[in-house]
Design a protein around this nucleic acid. Structure first.
Lengths: 143, 143
DNA sequence: GTGCTACTTCAAGTCGACTTGAGGTCAAGC
DNA sequence: GCTTGACCTCAAGTCGACTTGAAGTAGCAC
């Protein structure tokens, strides 16, 4: 039989079981049944979890991802949305490119203080005028 | 006289006054005095706020940024830290590059369902094996 | 001197994605 | 049959960066 125990899904998908329960509560995944208390999953859940991980990586929220599944569970991904996200990502990448180069310069800059480095000052001006949203990192941390 | 009122600093720096108070509480900025109750700022605070914005953009936390100022208020930025952040940023950029390209492909892909597109499936596998931390957006929102 | 209004303080609330803790249950091994 | 341990539920907590709300106050115009 092909049913997977929650522990196995957790292990294979690389997420804690608590996350699986949380996703279920949010309607992102479904368990195919129970053995006693324990959730059993259809192997297809792994693909679905991969899809969720992908969506998260692309910057979609869990709610947005939830909307990407048709009621029957089939992914129903709006191509326009993907294209829009790709463009958004592209803009962000460009910004990060500039930032990375500037950081590198600042790191290598021979000016005695960063405030005396023209490149650094230019960076500052840019930062002052065009703030970019930047992230927190996901740090699940140890038990 | 060159003192700026909190409202003016807020306006010029493009952040709400509440943020300035919050930053002060965190020790990131300091007001130069008061006129009555109202905070007055030295114009240098604008540069400092730009520095903070820059740091945020680069992915530093407020606490990390706080540590980038010497007790005398002068920025004291560790070049090694900058270089490390630049490398971190570079890795992230590469990941996002791949992701963007894949999203674009998926958006343009002629397969009837995404699950039948080989590129999409490859993407999925990658997402499943190497999860990437991705951000929340800063959405200050309307009053 | 009175009002208006933009500031002030301080505590508490928000957002998203989970995690943690307390107390309970059950399949399996001995 | 009893223990063990991994799962269960449900509520509450966490993290970071702020925002919001209530209640108070001072500078300025009149």
């Amino acid at each position: 039989m092909a049913e997977l125990d929650i522990a196995e899904v957790a292990q294979r998908a690389g997420v804690p079981a608590s996350t699986l329960r949380f996703y279920e509560e949010k309607g992102l995944i479904a368990s195919s049944g129970r053995r006693g208390l324990r959730r059993q999953y259809d192997p297809g859940v792994l693909e679905r979890l991969a899809l969720i991980a992908l969506g998260r990586t692309a910057g979609f929220s869990l709610d947005e991802i939830a909307r990407m599944f048709a009621p029957d569970g089939q992914p129903r991904i709006d191509r326009q949305m993907l294209a829009a996200k790709a463009e958004e990502l592209d803009r962000k990448i460009r910004e990060l490119d500039v930032l990375r180069d500037s950081l590198r310069h600042a790191a290598a800059c021979p000016a005695p203080s960063h405030m005396e480095c023209p490149t650094f000052r230019r960076l500052l001006k840019a930062a002052a005028s065009g703030p970019v949203a930047m992230p927190r990192r996901r740090t699940p941390g140890p038990p």
